[in-house]
């Protein structure tokens, strides 16, 4: 019997009787990271990384959470489980399972470039590797982070010069913290949407150091917001929430911005192809580093990526999951503070 099976509830380990990132409520869930398509509410018990725990509490509320550190093995029904940095967002982990010498690794989402906050991706050798493929086409290759940060900084300074605020749209968990670092390199005049501020509060409480930024509340005056940098989730695009920053320019920070057409159909002034997912070369490099005999490709361009791997002599199959469907949404609660009069 295989160590992991693909079931209707998600990835299941029959020997250990637990699931990894299940999309339906189960007894025991091991969670790779706190994004909504991987961490869903309703399960009885959760196992996750120490830094993922407070994020799950913020998003899913109180549950039975067990936290572990990276490379700190735990055993469930004789299956050895260890978490290893995935480099995707803070707390994100690859999950390694081992029993009787057979090793599986579930990557969750990952990126191979070290972003300085999420922990550096650690290649883990295994027999079977389950990889994402969000950007699994060779058109997706990212600029180094330093170059991307410089581009964002340049855009902010140009807007300030011309009297505009700079609204940067990014996931509240992951991208927002990186964009905050990029912005903090050129200015200290930074504001956060409630969803981002709530996420940051949790992270700071957990011991992460982040640059200082203020929360946008009803009491912040229009004058204070002039020429400011604002970091917010993409759901605010085309919403009246943005009005208070007028005049402003909007940039979307997402790997999808790599293609002009995606940029053009969003009502935004700029797009930065900055992603928390591995690019094409990152995916290939990660797959090869595992030395896996069998690769399973999930959410993204799974058919193209698995076919390419096969042509490279790597056993690969595509697997349909329910991950990655919510890539446009972001469900961190944005607190009630700012809605109050």
């Amino acid at each position: 019997m295989a160590l992991l099976q693909f079931t209707d509830n998600g990835l299941y380990c029959p020997d250990g009787d637990f699931y990894i990132d299940p999309w339906k409520p189960v007894n025991k869930a091991v969670i790779t990271h706190a994004h909504s398509d991987h961490a869903r509410a309703g399960s009885t018990a959760y196992l996750c990384h120490r830094l993922t725990k407070p994020l799950l509490e913020l998003r899913l509320g109180a549950h039975a959470y067990q936290e572990v550190e990276w490379n700190e093995p735990v055993f469930i029904n004789g299956v050895r489980i260890s978490l290893h940095p995935a480099g995707h967002v803070i707390g994100s982990s690859q999950i390694q399972l081992e029993k009787e010498g057979e090793v599986w690794v579930v990557s969750g989402d990952y990126k191979t470039e070290d972003d300085g906050v999420s922990g550096a991706f650690e290649p883990v050798r295994c027999n079977s590797f389950i990889t994402e493929s969000t950007f699994g086409l060779p058109i997706y290759n990212w600029q180094p982070q330093a170059v991307q940060y410089a581009q964002i900084g340049e855009w902010i300074l140009q807007n300030q010069q011309q009297g505009y605020s700079s609204v940067l749209l990014a996931y509240s968990l992951g991208k927002a913290q990186r964009v905050l670092q990029a912005a903090a390199m050129v200015t200290d005049h930074i504001f956060l949407h409630g969803a981002v501020a709530n996420t940051n509060d949790v992270l700071v409480n957990a011991g992460i150091t982040l640059p200082f930024a203020k929360r946008v509340t009803a009491s912040v005056t229009k004058d204070e917001l002039k020429k400011a940098v604002v970091i917010a989730p993409s759901s605010v695009l085309d919403s009246p929430w943005l009005k208070r920053f007028t005049p402003y320019r909007v940039a979307i920070c997402s790997g999808w911005m790599q293609v002009r057409g995606n940029k053009r159909r969003q009502n935004a002034d700029a797009g930065f192809a900055i992603s928390d997912h591995a690019d094409w070369n990152g995916l290939l490099q990660a797959v090869k580093a595992t030395g896996a005999e069998q690769v399973y490709v999930t959410h993204g361009f799974q058919s193209a990526f698995s076919r390419y791997l096969q042509e490279q002599g790597i056993q690969a199959a595509e697997v349909v999951t329910q991950y990655g469907e919510a890539f446009e949404t972001d469900d961190v609660p944005s607190s009630t503070q700012e809605q109050q009069p």
């Binding site: 086409l137 060779p138 058109i139 790599q258 293609v259 002009r260 057409g261 193209a304 390419y308």
Partner: peptide
Amino acid sequence: TATLPDWLFNECYDTVGDLAETISLL
């Protein structure tokens, strides 16, 4: 030039939707 199989080029082209841009990205 990019040492890619032709079918993968076509996958990319279908996704990008513009030949000139696909080439510049690959």
